[in-house]
Amino acid sequence: MEDNVYAPPTANVVADAPAAGTGRFYVVAPFKFCLLFFFTLGLYQLYWFYMQWARYSRRHPQQTVWPVARAIFAVFFAHSLAKRLDEAVRERGERSDWAPIATATAYVVSQILGNVSDQLAARNIGLPYSDLIGTAMLVPIGLSLLRMQAAANRASGDPQGDGNRRLGPANYVWLVIGAVLWLLLFSNYLL
């Protein structure tokens, strides 16, 4: 023990678990991610991409990153995000057990197929198959983003996403909006 009463404390005061919102990337628990993505018919991905790029931009202020543009035009930036997630996982000294390029490519191809089939359905071409294909593309899109989310969680030191596991009031609002969207979608199939 030191005799100097004016010396700063020497105890380790850094918390072991990262606080919510302080990770390198946007952290979300897998169940919460799936719930929000599928209930909103994939609209959640806009917010998800925005948050990933916003966190990256905050940690790299020397780089010009426009999170809104990268969220809107995600098909052009998915590979870049996957690469950065993989680099961050490796920087933590963890083994990278996912294929970032293949995952981003699966996202881009599925997103393009989904958009094309949605456009065909909007023009009454190939109904009901074009509409069903557009809806079915939510599965590979969601699964590829879930793989990227797992890497984001690991890169942020929260592999299970415990820092963002609970649903907040805004999440419930989006779940209700998503339920209405699903009802509208199913009513089109039934009528």
Rank of each mutant, 00 (worst) to 15 (best):
E2N: 01
D3V: 07
V5S: 01
P9E: 09
N12L: 00
N12H: 04
V14H: 13
A15W: 04
A15Y: 05
A20F: 09
G21P: 04
G23E: 00
G23N: 00
Y26S: 04
V28Q: 12
A29G: 11
P30K: 10
K32V: 08
F37Q: 08
F37H: 04
F38S: 05
F38Q: 05
F39Q: 14
L43D: 02
L43T: 06
L43N: 03
L46M: 10
M51C: 00
Q52I: 11
W53I: 05
R55W: 08
R58G: 07
H60N: 11
P61K: 04
Q62L: 07
Q63F: 05
Q63C: 09
T64M: 09
W66C: 11
P67M: 05
P67F: 06
V68W: 12
A69D: 10
A71H: 01
F73D: 10
F77M: 09
A78R: 15
A78T: 15
H79S: 11
S80N: 02
S80M: 04
R84T: 08
L85Y: 01
G93K: 02
W98I: 07
I101N: 13
T105R: 14
A106H: 06
Q111S: 15
S117Q: 06
L120Y: 13
N124E: 14
L132S: 12
L132D: 12
I133G: 02
I133K: 05
A136R: 01
A136I: 02
V139D: 08
I141A: 13
L143Y: 13
S144P: 02
L145F: 04
L145A: 05
L146R: 14
L146F: 08
A151W: 01
A155L: 13
G157L: 11
D158C: 09
N164P: 05
L167K: 00
P169D: 13
P169S: 12
A170W: 12
Y172P: 14
V176Y: 11
V180I: 14
L183I: 14
L184G: 08
L185Q: 09
L185Y: 06
L190W: 10
L190P: 07
